[in-house]
């Protein structure tokens, strides 16, 4: 049992110096993550979290293990102050402190006991248990709906920003064109403006 205690303590220490990163682009690889977070400290390990249940969301999540808890805390603080971008702009990544349930190969907690029991239809708690089952399914459906809504909002914002970017690009392109093809110079001559030099 001592080895189990030590293993769990080591696991908790690992959790303390790990950060959780999401809103990652599919283009982000392990090397990209390592290079990015080596700017804040020494990266020990990078692990992507697999997505089995949220089919619509393609934003990736990862766990980045740093050298010590101080570096991990520093990353979380700095990322919350300034938007940090990886492999694309302008959507920033999000960094949070890691939690135990995020690790797939975590050890079981020492000293925990699990006692289960079956309920049949004649049991007085059976009806309440059935209600709890239905409630769990309803909650799952609500969460799924909220995720759908969130993705719709994100897509809407992205389209809006794309239009803004196109408009800005057109504006600057038009300004360059006016200066380049001599229209500005002609107008200056027409209105008798002296000293205007397009260079």
């Amino acid at each position: 049992m001592d080895s189990a205690e030590e293993k769990y303590a080591a696991f908790e220490e690992t959790v303390n110096r790990t950060v959780y990163v999401d809103n990652l682009s599919p283009l982000v690889t392990e090397a990209v993550l390592k290079t990015a977070f080596n700017q804040f400290g020494n990266v020990e390990k990078v692990e992507f979290i697999a997505n089995f249940t949220q089919l619509r969301s393609t934003s990736r999540c990862a766990l980045v293990e740093m050298q010590n808890p101080k570096q991990a805390k520093q990353i979380v603080e700095e990322m919350s102050n300034l938007p940090f971008m990886m492999s694309g702009m302008p959507r920033p990544v999000r960094v949070l402190a890691a939690e135990k349930e995020m690790f797939e190969d975590r050890p079981r907690k020492p000293g925990r006991k699990i006692t289960c029991r079956w309920l049949d239809q004649d049991d007085p708690d059976f009806q309440i248990a059935q209600k709890l089952k239905h409630l769990a399914k309803k909650h799952a459906a609500e969460a799924s709906f909220l995720l759908k809504q969130q993705l719709a909002e994100e897509e809407k914002l992205a389209n809006q920003q794309a239009e803004t970017l196109k408009a800005n690009y057109k504006k600057y392109e038009m300004m360059d064109a006016v200066l380049f093809d001599g229209t500005a110079k002609s107008l200056a001559n027409h209105y008798d403006m002296k000293g205007f030099k397009p260079s």
């Binding site: 990015a36 938007p83 940090f84 971008m85 492999s87 959507r91 920033p92 999000r94 994100e154 800005n168």
Partner: peptide, 24 residues
């Protein structure tokens, strides 16, 4: 080579990033 950086204020990139942070 892809670069990762914190955006500087007073740029279009920064303002768009702020909108994403607000939505987040």
């Amino acid at each position: 080579v892809s670069t990762s950086h914190c955006s500087q204020p007073n740029t279009i990139e920064y303002e768009m990033a702020m909108e994403w942070c607000l939505l987040q």
